[in-house]
């Protein structure tokens, strides 16, 4: 399938997600609903991986690009942090590390518990 067709398919799923998000007033943003929707469409074989192969490779290989503009936005708001930069940044950085470690360990511990449980059956 051509790149343009593939992109159109993804856009259709994306806009459906946005639409569902607005109509239902659900807490999830439209792009996350779109992701769940695409996963569902792949699972029930309505969309096949080959049909979106080119566009997904393009996006996944260049994922970082799409986050750059949001990061640049910091430059206009940075002054709001005057006087609290140190505690502010410390809280963010330290908690990010801790949450990553806690979550990773939690998953590994749960995996062991689930596996032990199924061994005893």
């Amino acid at each position: 399938m051509s790149m343009v067709k593939e992109l159109l398919m993804i856009m259709l799923v994306y806009f459906s997600g946005e639409w569902i998000s607005q109509v239902t007033g659900i807490l999830l943003p439209g792009n996350v609903i779109g992701m769940i929707l695409l996963l569902f469409l792949l699972m029930v074989n309505i969309i096949k991986l080959e049909q979106i192969a080119k566009i997904s490779a393009l996006f996944l290989n260049n994922l970082t690009l799409f986050f750059i503009p949001a990061g640049v936005g910091i430059m206009v708001h940075y002054h709001l942090l005057e006087g609290i930069v140190v505690p502010f940044m410390t809280i963010i950085v330290v908690s990010t590390f801790l949450v990553m470690i806690i979550t990773g360990y939690a998953v590994e511990i749960m995996q062991r518990m689930v596996n032990n449980g199924s061994d005893h059956k």
Partner: peptide, 20 residues
């Protein structure tokens, strides 16, 4: 920048592919 930022939406949708 906003034009590129817009494509963050479809980029998130495509994260379903590695998940699948």
């Amino acid at each position: 920048g906003d034009v590129i930022h817009f494509f963050l939406g479809p980029a998130t949708v495509i994260l379903a592919v590695p998940l699948y």
